[in-house]
Nucleic acid binder design. Structure first.
Lengths: 229, 229
DNA sequence: GCAAAAGTGTTTTGTCTACACCCATGA
DNA sequence: TCATGGGTGTAGACAAAACACTTTTGC
């Protein structure tokens, strides 16, 4: 049964575009590529590609992310399906956008270079092709919403991090600043961080304690709905 | 320029499915159709259809909603793009799901009947085809999130409503109950409801004052981010 | 006059905010 | 010894939660 009925319907080109966020200790960054191919060759755009029959949309997104970063396990979430008629002047293409969070220093430098990829501070983005600027804006809004209630900020940090790194990350995401004491108290009160005996001595003489996100504790508390801000 | 490059890529069938919510004073309802066509004829499903080349995905969703309800101005929001490989056994079809909020009594009864559409309480849903059950679940979660921060609950109520109707709606959306005094105070403190001189006398002897949502006041306050719960 | 829903305040509790000093260490 | 970032506590403001009685009126 089935397949015959669908013969009469239109078929669409389906692209997947990825908004890849990273954090380097100062600002929130997005990974862009300088296109070495048509259309819009030479311009900056999100990493993307066409979905293929026989793979799911999510698989397509994963393929594109792995292809660019070399990372197999990436936090990735569907953002939105952009389906405006004239969004791609080259023809009607709908694009399913995904946003991803990666640790900047873990990505494969050679792969990035081979795609002419570069990290841009979200506040200093170049012009982007098509509706990619909208995609980035929506992704940033979604990231802000999500980070407030889900422990995804840790995806952007090394597995061991200091309280100041974590605070800097939250400040970058929300483009604001928080009181150090209030921030520490709030985060620790959630009970999902484990304090290590180790100290990070690189950035100060006294040294700052390192923490790790404790996924098991989080899973136990998740159902009650934690608020990370 | 452009069109030639895309010739080589695969093309997909793109469906749009709509989760249509309504509220009848007691429970939250979803509008389902008993399919009079293949595949899965005779089973319950969401209202949907295939997108057509030459229209945007959003236009397709709107077309489908108007076609079913007869209502031209419907609150509608994209939910998610469902792109699993085997979601439709009849072939690879990606579906962009939208959720809509309508006032049950304003919809065109004849149109609903001609599509074999029926309202179901969310707690008493029949089996649904494909991944439509997932769609409904995700839509309900999204509705809960959204209602907490945006004045969209009013889309489900008559333009004039009593405080008790509004409370019943929120209670239905969150499947919980609120204290009447706290609820009234909270909602009125937002300053986006206008109290009318009229009373609704149908449901009680004393009669309850009617309110309307004041969109202008809301627009002024919107940027500060209101919390409806 | 009574049943049935409408309407209204106060107290307690917890959470968020603002704010400033001492500590440990390497240079 | 001093410069640098690390670490910590308290008081006040505000918002949320708990809680019960009086009012109106159609029957």
């Amino acid at each position: 049964m089935g397949r015959i009925e669908y013969k009469q319907y239109d078929r669409f080109l389906v692209a997947v575009d990825c908004i890849i966020f990273g954090f380097d200790g100062t600002g929130l960054k997005a990974l862009l590529i300088k296109r070495g191919f048509e259309p819009e060759i030479g311009k900056w755009s999100l990493m993307g590609g066409f979905a293929r029959l026989g793979e799911s949309i999510e698989q397509a997104a994963q393929r594109i992310l792995v292809n660019l970063t070399g990372l197999e396990e990436i936090y990735m979430e569907q953002l939105h399906c952009f389906g405006e008629l004239e969004r791609d002047p080259g023809g009607q293409v709908i694009s399913v956008a995904y946003f991803a969070l990666i640790k900047i220093d873990e990505s494969n430098q050679e792969k990035l270079e081979s795609h002419n990829a570069k990290w841009f501070d979200l506040k200093k983005m170049p012009a982007l092709i098509f509706d990619h600027k909208d995609m980035v804006r929506v992704a940033k809004e979604r990231l802000q919403q999500k980070v407030a209630n889900h422990p995804i900020g840790f995806e952007l940090l090394p597995s061991k991090f200091t309280m100041q790194q974590l605070q800097a990350l939250y400040e970058a995401v929300y483009e604001t600043s928080f009181d150090k004491r209030n921030f520490t108290r709030k985060i620790l009160s959630l009970g999902v961080l484990q304090k290590l005996a180790e100290k990070e001595k690189a950035s100060s003489k006294k040294g700052a304690f390192l923490y790790v996100f404790d996924k098991k504790k989080y899973k136990k508390l998740e159902s009650r709905g934690l608020s990370f801000l």
